[in-house]
């Protein structure tokens, strides 16, 4: 590239490899995820330090978040089983949300890595597939632990002919969950990077705001779908 701006450099699919034994790790993903987790934990610890009945300061925001997550979970999973899944759904939502926004708002470019670059942890397919597989495990676990073998009646609902479709769904769900999140975040980062590369001033700003919007929406979609799948797994059929 003859024209080289310090802030505009496109790197796709390059990773900072860590080698532990025989295993390869994407170092930049873990570094940024630790920052994201650190921010989350710091906020949570600060907000819950002095809990009072009349909330003050960060407690308000935390309670708002909790309320929001509870409503989301209750709407999708139903009154009976939603309680156990608040932490999981909430963690998914918060982790993805803070990851996405962190990827967009934290000036990662100021840190130079030998290879790859820091960014949203959710812009790495490993992360999104891990999250999606966790969701799969979660809804199988939810269904089996709550309904036992009756969980499988979901596959023959409403008619036994549905079995192949429902089986396929078990594979397409994690695929679509992970690829949707991954694609959106990567595409957003790419668009912003390309625009910054072309016009480094002002022009990328609307796209950046749009990116923030999609980031939040993606977190919400992921959490809602996860809750919906769990809700479907614990749903009681009355014939």
């Amino acid at each position: 590239m003859p024209f080289h701006l310090p802030l505009a450099e496109l790197e796709l699919g390059q990773h900072l490899y860590w080698r532990i034994g025989n295993l390869n790790l994407h170092g930049q993903v873990f570094l940024s995820s630790w920052i994201v987790i650190g921010v989350l934990l710091a906020f949570v610890v600060l907000g819950t330090r002095r809990m009072e009945r009349d909330p003050r300061g960060a407690q308000n925001l935390l309670e708002f978040l909790w309320d929001y997550i509870r409503d989301l979970t209750r709407d999708q999973i139903g009154e009976k089983a939603y309680r156990d899944w608040i932490p999981f759904i909430g963690t998914l939502f918060l982790f993805i949300f803070v990851s996405n926004w962190g990827g967009a708002l934290i000036p990662w470019k100021l840190v130079h890595l030998p290879s790859g670059e820091l960014g949203a942890p959710t812009a790495d397919s490993n992360t999104t597939i891990a999250l999606a597989l966790l969701v799969s495990l979660a809804y199988f676990y939810a269904g089996l632990s709550r309904k036992g073998l009756r969980f499988f009646e979901y596959y023959v609902d409403p008619i036994p002919m549905m079995v192949p479709f429902k089986l396929i769904e078990d594979f397409t769900r994690p695929l679509s969950l992970s690829m949707r999140l991954f694609g959106n975040i990567v595409a957003d980062e790419l668009v912003v990077a390309v625009l910054v590369f072309l016009v480094p001033l002002i022009v990328p700003l609307p796209v950046m705001f749009l990116g923030l919007f999609t980031s939040a929406i993606q977190a919400l979609i992921f959490a809602t779908l996860a809750a919906y799948y769990i809700g479907e797994a614990v749903h009681e059929y009355h014939h």
Partner: peptide
């Protein structure tokens, strides 16, 4: 590029 990042992230 899927590798050990996936399970560790999970």
């Amino acid at each position: 590029d899927l590798d050990a990042t996936l399970p560790l992230m999970a």
